[in-house]
Write a protein that binds this DNA or RNA. Sequence first.
RNA 1: GUUUCCGUAGCUCAGUAGGAUAGAGCGUUCGCCUCCUAAGCGAAAGGCCGUGGGUUCGAUUCCCGCCGGGAACACCA
Length: 590
Amino acid sequence: MVPRNFRLFHRDWRFLFFKTIMEVGKMDFRKEIAAKISKLTELEEEKISSLIEIPPQGNMGDYAFPCFTLAKTMRKAPNMIAAELAKQFEQDAILEKAEAAGGYLNFFVNKTEFIKATIQEVLEKDTDFGSTKEGEGKKVLVEFSSPNIAKPFHIGHLVNTVTGNAIEKIFKHLGYDTVKLNHIGDYGTQFGKLIVAYKLWGNDEVIEKDPINELLKIYVKFHDEAEKNPALEDEARKYFKMLEQGDEEATALWKKFKDLSLMEFKKLYDDFNITFDSYAGESFYSDKMDEVVEILEKNNLLVESNGAKIVDLEQFNLPPCMILKSDGATIYATRDLAAAIYRKRTYDFYKCIYVVGNTQALHFKQFFNVLNLAGFGWYKDCMHIGTSLVKFADRKLASRKGDVIFAKEVVDEAVSKTLEIIESKERKLENPTEIAKKIGMGAIIYIILKNNRDRDIAFSWEDMLSFEGESGPYVQYTYVRGKSILRKAGDFNFEAADYSHLNSEDEFNMVKLLDAFKDAVKEAAERYEPFVISRNVTELAKAYNKFYNTHPILNAEENIKAARLNLTKAVCSVIKTGLGLLGIDTPENM
RNA sequence: GUUUCCGUAGCUCAGUAGGAUAGAGCGUUCGCCUCCUAAGCGAAAGGCCGUGGGUUCGAUUCCCGCCGGGAACACCA
């Protein structure tokens, strides 16, 4: 078996080698290296491929194979193995050199081939660059945003809205069939309170103008008044009960509040270009909760505790999960259970991702485990992706507003700051407000998605409104510069370019980053971390800016110019795709 | 108290399936617009990777303790 395969492999290899020259755009350098090493060792190509890394310094090589893992099986020192492999290495048209450095075997690719192959692939695939078919036929639900009706949308909501939106886009890019769910908080006793408050103090004219703030105002007033007059609480409970029983007046009011709030939320979603496939909120599941209780009872999971019904989770070292309150009413865990069961039936999901604040980690652990105990094996496909908590680095500004920063306030500040900058420039833009919006939103989204989700976000107006260095506007600006050049250049094509002219370190590094984008998308999905893409795209922007400052493009000699223009086009394309996956729009001018 | 996350440059953060000289941005100092958009580029300064042990040829990375900070811990969602 071995020799036969070996011979076949040899034939394939030559064929492949020949193909490289013909179809260099399809070349996968990592795979080529893996094939070579595999030939010399016992390791499988795939295993090798996963081990291959990029050396920390460019001058060390383009790819590196660490020999440490081979040391045990070969019973040799890693540096010996590396040296031996280096000796046996045969160069070819795409891999020029292999060099042993300590325990690493470093490879040097044929730069021109690599550059040509990468640029061609980017230009061919354009916005599909980095996409795969790994998700084909698999449905992924992403629940995010989920604000509460009649409550203001604050910066914390913005964080998981933006994060969830990006995660959905990333999965979609990898071929998954995604569904965006907004689990609106539109149910619960607070609506009884709101109805009472409205009947006492509501003023339609004022409410129409600023629905959420006005509703919040009367809601707060209710709490103040209820302290003096407890009878109001009874009244509220009465109205919520009426609502549950389908009372016409109560339902009409509830619907009115909900519609007004949704209108407000949608304005914000529009600002960020976010849409949902479903707004089925908590109320949607109100008639699906009896079944949850039945299922749990049938499985003997419900236990009475202080008058309430709970599911004991001690075996998981978790506090119990409450299902029914002592007054028999349901609670959010019940609704989440109903929603999960409904979603599994309706969508038969491959994964159901809950993008919700880290503060709710315990709740999700509990409710997933209840699903588990109830015999739903698919509980393993449900995952909570916790988003960062926003804290205040710059207390002074925050405390003035009562330690809460509203999403709208952030949006307004970002846009007006952008307009200010635009106006201060000599260059006049045709549609400054539209551009200011793209840039302002870009700045906000970037701040949210630039770091890992486990870490709290230290909010400061200074950082939020800083459009220099690692920022959304910086990356957008890079794109705009590139596009400006491309517009001025007019027609040119890929074939006309001789890539051997892209021989500077800067140009090569940029192409490496283009290539790395593919891995970045995959890693971002694996880790549910959009920031992996922010990093890649920012690095790319930095590399391009450096190149831009040191190399003429339009003013370069004709034969060099075509190559640099194609490179510029590829960089713009990847920036646009990358920012797009984060939910950031790219203006053509700024 | 229990559970969990975090501690890397003045600030905000990357990096860590153990491995090559620990990296950015902001801020600071100094340079660069007769040239494709200066929201840009270059240079310098700035680090016992919280701390004490352990495992290892090798630890910022893994394990344990400690210190410091955040969060959650049933009738709200």
